[in-house]
């Protein structure tokens, strides 16, 4: 078997077909009509301008998170702590909003400050995981998981403690910001902010460029492929790992800021919305290649939004989207593994 591009594409198409087949079996086992399910899923994601814009709203943070994760994966790190980095980004950005709320500063500047604060928060939290790994010898997976819990606890404490709304502290989150501080949308009815979309597109382009055309990216790759060799060749390995953590956290924090400034307009208990874990899936699915991250993230976002129709129309559990996403990742990883083995066997 030759490792050519058509072969690889064929493999990926095969994997998608397999994942669909599996999901269809799940549907049949649940006595649900597969065709109607897929049709509603599709209509739910593409059926109107409104749902398309909802898909894009969900695409923005997912793409931001995926962009960051491409950097940590490139350097060989599993940044599971990404959820916490989104959360802390959201907390920092809410903090900035609260500080500047009555300051008389122009709304645009307040929003900008909130975004910068979010990036800072995410980066700091990520560097904490990085420091735990570098100086404490804590594997980033465990360190990151631990920090995720801490971030969630911190978030809940703020919402029900110091930042609680007047009256009844609510699951609904902190007091919503004044509409003048919401990231502007296309029109009052829309939830989609062109600025947010622009930020996400810029993020993936930056990461793509960084990995493809800079020494920094090249060195990240070198560290990821073989840290020992990279170190011997004079690349300061831990600094590069730390930098990739910081950058990834920055993107995650930005995603948190988008959630606060553009989607919920307040801090809510589950502000990270699971985008971190979903971003990990997308990054694995695209085999850490920035070029196809955007469309795959879009596909995942479409599945999320489209699947809402399943319980409404067919009384089906909408975790079907999760089943499809998960199977897809598994099958593609399996296919990649099989391919690597076959190539090895043939001595290529």
């Amino acid at each position: 078997m030759r490792d050519s591009r058509p072969n690889r594409t064929l493999l990926q198409i095969g994997a998608i077909a397999l994942a669909l087949l599996f999901t269809t079996f799940v549907l049949l086992a649940a006595k649900a009509p597969p065709l109607a399910a897929y049709l509603n899923l599709g209509l739910g994601a593409l059926g109107s301008w409104e749902v398309i814009s909802n898909v894009l709203v969900s695409w923005v943070p997912l793409l931001l998170v995926t962009s960051g994760l491409l950097l940590t994966f490139t350097v060989g790190l599993w940044n599971i702590g990404i959820e916490g980095q989104i959360t802390v980004g959201a907390i920092f950005s809410t903090w900035a909003f609260r500080l500047l709320l009555g300051s008389g500063m122009a709304p645009g500047l307040v929003i900008l400050a909130a975004f910068l604060a979010g990036m800072l928060g995410g980066a700091l939290w990520a560097m904490l995981a990085g420091a735990l790994k570098t100086f404490g010898g804590v594997n980033e997976i465990f360190g990151g998981l631990g920090l995720n819990f801490v971030a969630t606890a911190l978030n809940l404490w703020l919402i029900f403690g110091p930042w609680k709304r007047p009256g009844v502290a609510s699951m609904s989150g902190t007091v919503p910001f004044d509409p003048s501080l919401w990231l502007p949308t296309l029109n009052p009815q829309s939830r989609l902010s062109p600025i947010a979309v622009g930020i996400a597109v810029a993020a993936i382009l930056v990461v793509y460029g960084m990995l493809r055309g800079t020494y920094f990216g090249l060195r990240l790759k070198a560290v990821g492929k073989n840290p020992r060799a990279a170190f011997l060749l004079g690349i300061p390995t831990w600094q590069y790992m730390m930098a990739s953590f910081a950058l990834c956290g920055l993107f995650a924090g930005l995603a948190g800021a988008v959630q606060v400034a553009s989607v919920y307009h307040r801090l809510i208990p589950s502000i990270s919305s699971g985008y971190g874990y979903m971003g990990l899936m997308v990054a694995m699915l695209v085999n850490y290649k920035a070029a196809i991250a955007a469309p795959v993230a879009l596909f995942f976002a479409a599945l999320n939004v489209g699947s809402i129709q399943l319980p409404i129309v067919l009384q089906l559990d909408s975790s079907l989207a999760g089943v499809l996403q998960g199977t897809l990742v598994l099958v593609v990883l399996l296919a990649q593994g099989a391919r690597t083995r076959m190539l090895k066997k043939e001595g290529l």
Partner: peptide, 16 residues
């Protein structure tokens, strides 16, 4: 809730 349905808001789901 956003943990189960990432990226959605209750008002958006109400609209669906």
């Amino acid at each position: 809730n956003p943990a189960d349905r990432p990226g959605t808001t209750a008002s958006q789901l109400a609209e669906s």
